[in-house]
Design a binder for these strands. Structure first.
Lengths: 153, 153
DNA sequence: TCTTTAATGCTACATATTAGCGTTTAGAAA
DNA sequence: TTTCTAAACGCTAATATGTAGCATTAAAGA
């Protein structure tokens, strides 16, 4: 993510903390910066590793707690995916995903048409929709190639 | 799920096993039946509990392995959601989800318009799309009510 | 019925996440 | 700036959750 946007997001985070009477700590700030530098929907574990190199000795628990906190604030998001490990996404703006049904990997996907769906009525559920994501489910390139190889054996 | 559909799905499973040279075992069949009887996107753990009562002494490992197997066959699906635990979905046909950004719960949602999106071109990724799901992200009724209560304190 | 080997169940392990609690420190107040 | 206080941190330990390896069992074709 470019510097200007990072800065913007960090400011947003600090403002959010202020509004909620929560504290801006070194740990929180560094963790946020780290997530913003990662892509490919890092897991908490991957984020821990990356943070550790910037803030040696940071407690794992803190990273978990903070990620959850940032997600609740909406400064980052939790990614929706089929795997067994929570993954995070620095991107908060509208975008979509290709989800591989074989290896569970998922890839960012941009499409203007998908960005402009008219939202259906969810009032029957008392559910307040904020935004949406489309997941295109299928088989990724790597898995297709592996399947072909296995067939040819 | 009604009996006719369950039967249909179990037949589909047996056929699938035959085609792939895999075995139809009591465990697999009961696990599938169990998942088809559950809704609300059960976790492996919840499925274990439910299966245990039908097939006492079944190994946890078997349930995990079988769920993965069934998902790979496409007889059930893995649900895409923001939580840290794998969850499964007996439903394989097109439908969508309301995802609560606060409590991570997700709710089935039907909408004809959402069912008829034209799929964008994913060939640049070498990705073969099979179907898609739309996730409407927001705040569920329960969480809205809790927020209101907390504000009024 | 016999045979083969995929699938199960067991044990142990690896990974992921959360809880409880004493200590530190951000940020408001003096 | 210093003081104060509770929010946040770090530690430890516990709890899920998911997987690997291997001996045993049983599905399904001969």
């Amino acid at each position: 993510m470019d510097l200007a946007e990072k800065d913007q997001r960090i400011r947003e985070f600090k403002r959010g903390c202020g509004e909620r009477g929560e504290r801006v700590t070194v740990q929180r700030t560094v963790i946020l910066e780290t997530v913003l530098d990662l892509d490919n929907h890092p897991s908490a574990d991957q984020i821990c590793d990356a943070v550790e190199s910037r803030l040696p000795g940071i407690a794992r628990t803190t990273v978990y707690r903070t990620l959850d906190h940032l997600a609740r604030m909406g400064v980052i998001t939790k990614a929706c995916h089929p795997g067994p490990v929570a993954r995070f996404d620095p991107r908060t703006e509208m975008h979509h995903h290709l989800v591989c049904l074989n290896c569970n990997d998922f890839i960012d996907f941009e499409d203007d048409t998908l960005n402009e769906l008219t939202m259906p009525d969810t009032s029957a559920f008392g559910f307040e929709v904020k935004d949406y994501r489309v997941q295109l489910r299928g088989i990724c390139k790597t898995c297709q190639e592996r399947e072909k190889k296995e067939e040819s054996i």
